[in-house]
């Protein structure tokens, strides 16, 4: 039984001009699934429409059996879905601690235990807890963004290009955190440009092209699939 089930999703910014033209995918409990694809394939639109930020015109999406339909973004938290946008994913003028508190906004009661858990995962943020998040480095910001999303103990964590703009060393660091998050029981769906690094920590992957899913396979298989390299690099070749 899959946690997230997307069937024939049609979505876009303007009715009649769909960017996604019937995408289907599924993510099982405890998996890390990566969506790849060339620029303009609709990767970001896919996660945004799952996260309720892009109007959905057709298809069916369920999380843990519950239909998501056109639920507004702020209602999805209650269903167990947390989404980290690619850019503008932290409150720059709020402190790191306040960012985490906002992550727990929909919850009642004290947040101390959850905040402590986030700092356990990202101990490097601890010295900056009272600092404005906007002043942190790119890698630290990404951790704040992910930490904020984890505050609600989501069933599914959706990451939109978590490695964008990071140095290779930081990419490795962020991806190893993603693994830790999965090992702690959170299912992860992410969109990535950085195909090789992402597939190395993923269980499965989808390749999106022109608004449809073109290939789906085990991550290890995709890494050596010549067609993937072609879609990616626009030339014959494979990723490994």
């Amino acid at each position: 039984m899959s946690l997230l089930q997307v069937d024939q999703l049609v979505a876009g910014y303007l009715r009649g001009v769909p960017i996604l033209r019937g995408v289907s995918l599924s993510v099982a409990q405890g998996e890390i699934v990566t969506v790849l694809g060339p620029n303009g394939a609709g990767k970001s639109t896919l996660v945004k429409s799952i996260a309720g930020l892009v109007p959905v015109f057709g298809g069916h999406t369920t999380l843990d059996g519950q239909p998501l339909g056109n639920l507004p973004a702020h209602r999805l938290i209650a269903v167990g879905l947390a989404y980290v946008p690619q850019t503008n994913n932290i409150f720059k003028r709020l402190s790191v601690l306040e960012n985490l508190e906002m992550g727990g906004y929909p919850l009642r009661g004290r947040l101390d235990a959850r905040i402590a858990r986030v700092f356990d995962l990202f101990p490097e943020l601890l010295p900056f807890r009272k600092q404005a998040a906007g002043r942190l480095s790119g890698g630290q910001r990404q951790m704040v963004a992910i930490g904020r999303a984890l505050m609600v103990d989501p069933k599914l964590l959706i990451l939109d290009e978590p490695s964008a703009g990071l140095s290779p060393k930081l990419v490795a660091q962020v991806f190893s955190k993603v693994r830790q998050i999965r090992d702690a029981g959170v299912t992860v769906l992410m969109v990535e440009q950085n195909a090789k690094a992402a597939l190395q920590i993923s269980d499965r992957g989808y390749v999106l092209a022109e608004g449809r899913e073109r290939i789906q396979d085990q991550a290890s298989a995709l890494l050596v699939n010549p067609e993937v390299g072609e879609l990616y690099l626009g030339a014959k070749g494979k990723l490994l």
């Binding site: 996260a51 930020l53 507004p72 973004a73 702020h74 938290i77 209650a78 989404y83 946008p85 503008n88 994913n89 932290i90 409150f91 720059k92 003028r93 709020l94 306040e98 906002m102 992550g103 906004y105 929909p106 904020r148 609600v152």
Partner: peptide, 16 residues
């Protein structure tokens, strides 16, 4: 303050 900083992110975060 969070909403003033970024209204769309506030929505995603679950702020009413």
């Amino acid at each position: 303050r969070a909403t003033a900083d970024d209204p769309q992110l506030a929505q995603v975060t679950g702020i009413d």
